[in-house]
Design a protein around this nucleic acid. Structure first.
Lengths: 342, 342
DNA sequence: TTGTAGGCGTTATCAG
DNA sequence: CTGATAACGCCTACAA
């Protein structure tokens, strides 16, 4: 009739509730024989544990700390907003979140903040940051104190995080490459590549993926060296003008943020909509640029998914429970004007 | 300190637990003045209801019935599998699912099945089916008996469902159109359109969106009339051969299923990889066709998301709880070889 | 119109 | 090693 409960298991196995609980939670102090009997009863009755009730009884509160760079581009803003929203929803499962902003690029400050995390106050930590030795050590220390850590949007491959929530930058770059190649057609063309900085691993990986594809599948396209703008609109405009003075370009690949500066520069040169522009991440700016046809495609990851996944994974890690890989796998979204969400 | 509970509210408002509960659930029999006092306390303490505990106390089981056409293409199979998986996960929240297959295309049978649904056995119904008058009435009747109904993947706009889980076919068609146009380049070209049948609303809507875009943005491309194959590989091959005998084509738009038949036909004609092929839905076949470069893009919806969303929405409807629009909004996925998931 | 007592399925704290 | 028994936060009779 109704689903079997721990009581049914206890009766069936001829033991008490407490013993069943011990077996269920793999707690010590039970004879192997008893363990076996309980497991046998569980299997026989097809028992499924009611996580809601379990968590209720535990009456545990999960306070997660999420560290994002302050300022930052539109993307960070978007993620922050998505995080707040996800947190509001997660409150229904006793999962809370504290959003902490650290000085962008200053991994020493971040490391100090991480060092101050109290393991019995904080059930898990998520962070979006570039990987540096200091930070790597801070993450290691945190995990050593039994605090689960997940990398957010930007992977920290050598820090030994419990999980990475985000998309593979190299694959994202490859995706951008294929679109660029196809959008350009098979004619010989040049493509300019812009980035704020090439110091961040994500930018490097994207460029790598992009180049791989262009080289292998679109040999007629000539990809120029990366133009670093260091976030300055003026530098971008000047650099672009210089490139254009010596050659003609058919496409622009924007490795990082700066959609707005780019469209402004293109407008000034009367090139808006005349070159294929492909960028990363869906923000207010890239969204409107897509809508007006100034950018033709954006490779993105769903911020809502990113946020919910982060909280769910942290929660699972805190409970030492397995995670649903399928559900937590972020997709590489290709966004054009016609499939713009919302 | 800890999160406020109903007890805190009761104390703060100077009433009993039961009264708080009545207010929380908008049950009758409470003076306006008391309601006000309770709400005031709720607001003051920042109370957040623990739905898990609430559902536990209700000890309610949610048995959902999902109706899918039998046989069907790979897509239906994929959805069925995703449903089973989602159900397994949802079991942890006392949500169960029964998958029922009905004779594909036979909405009379389906209507009969729906008429047999017992409202106090089944907490919600999801169905993937073409809209016919019989079915529309069956859905109406079901809702009249207070059973929530959601349309799955294929919308039933006039049946008055509680919700539609899926993507807008017309927008999906528009997306396919833009990709086709861009992939073809700006040269004058012809595009063949294939479909199993044009009797299904989804196919019609997709074609409509596709045409809109081609007409508006890619005037140099000539889109041919839809070739209906009625699921027959041979018909597809013959039809395609006939089209090719009189004209040359640069692209093929596959409105429905039949990826395998198409690639087989193209192979026979030595056209594999030489024309741009764009289709819908990610299945085993379309996936391998993407991988081998026989299909260049697929417009899809995430089956895992589809399944989880269906169960979540039904659950929310059963509880008369609001749904998180953001989370339940399915995206129009553009899948190419480089961003193939898994 | 309001309050009291018991129970939902699980975990935790004691004794035995 | 094992077993009672009381929580956890909420809902539901039933009683007042």
């Amino acid at each position: 009739m109704s689903r079997p409960t721990v009581n049914d298991i206890a009766r069936e196995a001829g033991v008490s509730l407490a013993t069943v609980d011990r077996v269920l939670n793999a707690r010590p102090g039970v004879r192997d024989k008893t363990i076996f009997a309980v497991n046998e009863a569980i299997a026989r009755l097809g028992y499924i544990r009611d996580m809601a009730a379990a968590n209720l009884a535990r009456s545990r509160r999960y306070r997660m700390a999420v560290f994002l760079p302050d300022g930052g581009g539109q993307f960070v803003q978007t993620v922050a907003a998505a995080m707040e929203e996800a947190a509001q929803q997660a409150a229904a499962t006793r999962t809370e979140m504290t959003l902490i902003r650290y000085p962008a690029g200053d991994t020493h400050s971040l490391a100090a903040l991480l060092a101050g995390v109290d393991p019995d106050e904080v059930a898990g930590v998520a962070l979006m940051a570039p990987e540096t030795p200091v930070l790597r050590d801070a993450v290691r220390a945190l995990r050593h104190r039994a605090v689960p850590v997940v990398a957010l949007a930007s992977d920290l491959p050598n820090a030994g995080c419990d999980h990475f929530v985000g998309i593979d930058s190299r694959a994202a770059g490859r995706t951008a490459g294929v679109l660029m190649g196809r959008f350009l057609g098979n004619r010989p063309q040049r493509v300019a590549v812009l980035a704020e900085t090439m110091l961040l691993r994500d930018a490097i990986e994207r460029r790598r993926g992009f180049d791989e594809v262009m080289l292998a599948d679109f040999a007629t396209v000539d990809v120029l060296p990366t133009l670093e703008t260091h976030g300055a609109t003026e530098a971008l405009r000047r650099g672009l003008a210089e490139v254009l003075s010596s050659t003609e370009i058919g496409g622009i690949y924007l490795l990082g943020s700066g959609h707005r500066a780019l469209t402004a520069a293109l407008e000034g040169m009367g090139l808006l909509g005349r070159v294929v522009v492909i960028g990363h991440e869906l923000t207010l700016h890239s969204r409107s640029a897509l809508q007006s046809g100034h950018i033709h495609a954006v490779i993105a990851q769903n911020p809502g998914h990113l946020a919910r996944s982060t909280l769910r994974v942290l929660r699972a890690k805190a409970d030492r429970a397995p995670i649903d890989e399928g559900q937590e796998q972020l997709r590489i979204d290709i966004v054009i004007r016609e499939n713009l969400p919302d």
